[in-house]
């Protein structure tokens, strides 16, 4: 476990560093994949960048609204640099909406954009898992399997490793679909299927999960629904071809 990278007097938290690397790498991959599909790669880069800026702005705005009594007394904090003062859920929705608005405004073909974005998202997911493993985040359930990792004194399933491996397989399948020059959007459907299967398969090995309906793991249900939706999309595309 290496939660902090100590370089001389500089202490760099590895998980946020991995998030940053994942974001920039994903933007680069999106641009590259877009150019490969005959699009202007800068558009994908810009859509991602505007999306993140919207995420940050809306995340802070939501925090200000949610905790207005506190901000009313300290208005300077509205533009403060505190990295904890964000609500990421509303921020993510705003980020996606702004990125979608950019794609729509520049009349980019949605299926091709989805193909490029899907590949970028999978690459980002793999890098984030490396950060999670280093930081000891995403705790796995206790196990005695030979490949268990010891985190905080307990031998556990290495959930980030499972996720990274499954995402790598999903990325390989997505890449294969993109290279086969199938109809635009097919690679994105393959990626969605891969992500869905990954989440559906791995979630029970986590130490903690959000649950619904008396104990069903929420992310597992979402992964299952994503995989089924992707299968349906792939079936339709194959039929059309």
């Amino acid at each position: 476990m290496l939660p902090i990278l100590q370089i001389g007097p500089l202490a760099i938290p590895t998980y946020p560093l991995a998030l940053l690397i994942a974001f920039w790498t994903a933007l680069e991959v999106a641009g590259w994949a877009a150019r490969r599909a005959g699009l202007d790669g800068d558009h994908l880069y810009n859509a991602g960048l505007f999306g993140v800026l919207a995420l940050i702005a809306a995340g802070r705005l939501a925090h200000v609204i949610a905790f207005w009594p506190a901000y009313r007394l300290q208005p300077a904090e509205i533009v403060g640099l505190n990295p904890q003062a964000f609500l990421w859920g509303p921020g993510a929705i705003a980020g996606l909406l702004v990125a979608a608005w950019y794609v729509q405004r520049h009349r980019l073909p949605w299926p091709a954009v989805a193909d490029a974005a899907a590949m970028a998202a999978l690459v980002g997911l793999i890098i984030v898992q490396a950060g999670a493993l280093l930081a000891g985040a995403d705790l796995g359930a206790a196990t005695d399997l030979p490949w268990a990792v010891t985190l905080w004194g307990v031998r556990r399933h290495p959930v980030p490793v499972y996720t990274a491996l499954a995402a790598t397989l999903a990325l390989a399948a997505t890449w294969w679909a993109a290279r086969r020059s199938l109809r635009r959007g097919t690679a994105a459907a393959v990626a969605l299927f891969g992500w869905g299967i990954t989440v559906w398969l791995i979630e029970p090995f986590r130490a903690e999960s959000a649950t619904i309906l008396g104990g069903l793991r929420l992310m597992q249900v979402i992964g299952w629904a994503a995989a089924l939706s992707a299968l349906w999309l792939l079936r339709r595309r194959t039929a059309e071809e």
Binding site: L139, A141, A142, W152, G153, V154, W200, L201, E203, P204, A207, E208, S209, T211, G214, G215, L216, R217, Q220, V221, W224, A227, L228, L231
Partner: peptide, 27 residues
């Protein structure tokens, strides 16, 4: 197959109502 196997895996992986799958005895 995905529908049936998927539902079965979700059911098998559910967190029991008594929370016994939650991390216990952590140091």
């Amino acid at each position: 197959a995905m529908l049936i196997v998927g539902a079965a895996w979700i059911w098998l992986g559910r967190v029991p109502a008594d929370g016994s799958a939650a991390p216990t005895g952590l140091p």
